[in-house]
Amino acid sequence: MKADKKTRTLRDLVLILSLLCIGLILFFILRGSMQAGTQVAVIVDNETVATYSLLTDGEYPLLDGKNLLVIEEGAAYIGESECPDHLCERMGRIRKSGARIVCLPHHLTVKII
């Protein structure tokens, strides 16, 4: 019984470590493939509704003002959102291609291309 408990704990550790490794490897592959982007695309329900240049600073209301996209010094972020969780506001600035901010409640994705 005791040995059984030990092997189970060992299996747990193997499971935890392999999942962490897979996560980390995927994370670094994703990061490694990203380069500085020049444009930001606004995607609603899988359709690109607008693209803006990352090179010019500006503020753009999205979805009739429900989200505010801010472009500043080559980075994009969501300045304000009417969604319930406000997670998109806290996702920070994105500047590399492939990076994205998702606002699930509004079906909105802001992506660097």
Partner: peptide, 20 residues
């Protein structure tokens, strides 16, 4: 399924680690 895009897979690595 809801957003109709595979783009959300972008969060998979972080969600794997967080879930673990």
């Amino acid at each position: 399924l809801i957003l109709g895009t595979a783009g959300v897979l972008y969060y998979l690595p972080v969600l794997l680690i967080a879930g673990t």
